[in-house]
Amino acid sequence: MQNDEQFIEALNNKNVSAYHTLFKDYYVSLVMYAMHYVGQEEAKDIVQDLIVSIWEKNIQFSSIGSFRTFLYTAIKNRSINYLKHKKAESNYISHALHQGSAEEQELYGIMEEEIYRIFFHVVDNLPQRCQEIFKLHLEGKKEEEIASLLQISISTVKSQKQKAFHRLKDELGELLSIIFFI
């Protein structure tokens, strides 16, 4: 995809606005992924440190797929190493590391974050009202409930939902060029 290639090239060239895009599109999901292993505050630090070190070490990426794989893998490694260094939480580590096959858990974890990353990306780019309706829809609310909650007509709910769906469809193609090597 043209945009992806440009984004990766700009990242490789240490373009600050590409890093801004990195924060906008990935930061929330990466923090959430780290939260599978550590608490929210530690997760934020781990993600921040990783991105700073990508910049400082001038890490080069060959494609959007390997870029995403790198991010998730690095977050996992850093989170686990953080836990290992924190003796006090050793009980939690053994718990976190021994639930099911580690590899499988990791795969599901990445899938979860990628699924919601797509929703977040779409929602962030919708008009305020439309965002509200789409969120409520994802939370399983019926059209009537949404209408009464926001004090709007059911037909407005319907049309706003359609708008969100169309946007989602356009974005799906773009967002799904993911290559995972797990």
């Binding site: 600050v16 890093y19 801004h20 924060f23 906008k24 930061y27 929330v28 923090v31 959430m32 939260m35 929210q40 934020k44 993600v47 921040q48 991105i51 700073v52 910049w55 400082e56 979860e112 919601y116 929703f119 977040f120 969120k135 994802l138 939370e139 399983g140």
Partner: peptide
Amino acid sequence: KAKEKFLIKEHINSEKAFRQFSSNI
């Protein structure tokens, strides 16, 4: 899960994180 995700998202400010990044680098 959807509720939880959107709720957590409210507490994660990517713009603030980016500003922190800018001053770090």
